[in-house]
């Protein structure tokens, strides 16, 4: 753990510390609306971090990550509604289901050497296939939706994840920091270096003895398991699940916005991306509304323009650029311990 943030400058560490403190303090000064917005921001940061393991580290583009969100959500919700089993147990079933789904998609995709965009299409196909299937599972509410009994919003029952917005807020905050620490560990582990090598050049990675199939499969499974946790949170936070929303391609695309904007393959990118994107989108919506206009898709237009702008002008993402200019991270040549493979 001593190496957790070793690529940050002193200034970067202070900034990170202040940021963490501010986040911890949010429920003490913020109103319900602000807490719910930041909860959503953190949710996107968390799930973006999970997606980043597969794309940013191992270089495998998934546009079907809503599948894992949905599986986690439905598995834990079904256990809760039908058997009274709480989310902390349901998490395991959700992760199992998502990991299994990831393993199947990965095995099929990688065994049959489906690469790049074709692999992305395969992930979409599985998510869509599952969406339509869930539309027809009556036991889980079908297309009419699956509802969890709404808890007492004033109390706090962490065991059943029922309670006040502050409870949910701290749960997602813990998940976000946990995911950051896990990703940092992964990136500096053997498998992490293998992933980076595969991302950069699969053939060369194989030539230095990396079992490419196995390494990629592990990436998909870890990413899927992490994402499914986000699904469990989603189910208990919103208390309603609709296949059309949770498994949709649109949702999958929303999930990748934060890491793409923040910086694919970076550790802080997904968090940074989520924190600039969601508030800006709220601002745009507010601006349009206060101008007296009714534009239901304006937020998505903003997201779309943000994607285009980022890939055109700053394909490595906003975080590396900001971190460089504010001197939050060590630059190549700054000090000998800097390692270029760590994209902070």
């Amino acid at each position: 753990m001593t190496t957790l943030f070793d690529q940050l400058t002193a200034r970067g560490r202070v900034a990170l510390g202040l940021f963490a403190l501010a986040l911890l303090a949010v429920p003490f000064f913020a109103d319900g609306y602000l807490i719910s917005v930041i909860t959503l921001v953190l949710w996107f940061a968390y799930v973006g971090q999970a997606w980043n393991v597969m794309m940013g580290f191992a270089g495998q583009l998934s546009l079907g990550h809503s599948l894992y969100v949905g599986l986690g959500a439905y598995a834990s919700a079904a256990l809760f509604v039908h058997f009274g089993v709480g989310p902390w147990a349901g998490v395991w079933l959700g992760m199992l289901a998502a990991t299994l789904a990831g393993a199947i998609i990965g095995t099929l995709g990688f065994r049959f050497a489906i690469r790049g965009v074709h692999f992305a299409l395969l992930t979409i196909a599985f998510a869509e296939f599952t969406r339509i299937a869930f539309d027809h599972i009556g036991w889980l509410g079908g297309s009419g939706g699956f509802f969890l009994p709404v808890g007492d919003a004033a109390g706090a029952n962490p065991f059943d994840l029922r309670g006040s917005p502050a409870l949910f807020y701290y749960v997602i905050l813990a998940l976000t920091f946990g995911a950051l620490a896990l990703c940092r560990r992964l990136l500096h582990s053997r498998i992490g270096y293998f992933w980076l090598a595969i991302r950069e050049d699969q053939e060369a990675a194989q030539a230095v003895g990396i079992d490419v199939f196995r390494a990629k499969l592990i990436a998909v499974m870890i990413s899927a398991a992490m994402t499914s946790l986000g699904g469990v949170f989603y189910a208990f936070f919103y208390n309603n699940l609709f296949p059309e929303q949770i498994f949709s391609v649109g949702r999958s695309i929303e999930l990748i916005l934060a890491p793409v904007i923040g910086g694919i393959g970076t550790l802080f990118g997904p968090i940074f991306g989520a924190f600039i994107l969601t508030p800006l989108a709220e601002l745009v919506t507010w601006g349009v509304e206060s101008a007296g206009l009714d534009m239901p898709g304006i937020k998505q237009i903003f997201y779309g323009l943000a994607l285009v702008a980022i890939v055109v002008y700053r394909p490595e993402g906003v975080w590396p650029w900001v971190a460089r200019h504010l001197r939050l991270v060590h630059q190549p040549g700054d000090q000998p311990s800097h390692r270029a493979g760590d994209r902070p």
């Binding site: 965009v117 323009l305 890939v311």
Partner: peptide, 23 residues
Amino acid sequence: RPDHMQFILLVGVAMVIVNGLLI
């Protein structure tokens, strides 16, 4: 540019068009 960059570019274009039509 890499495949995924092209893909993300067109995903962005698609989002703008479909929501523009919605508006």
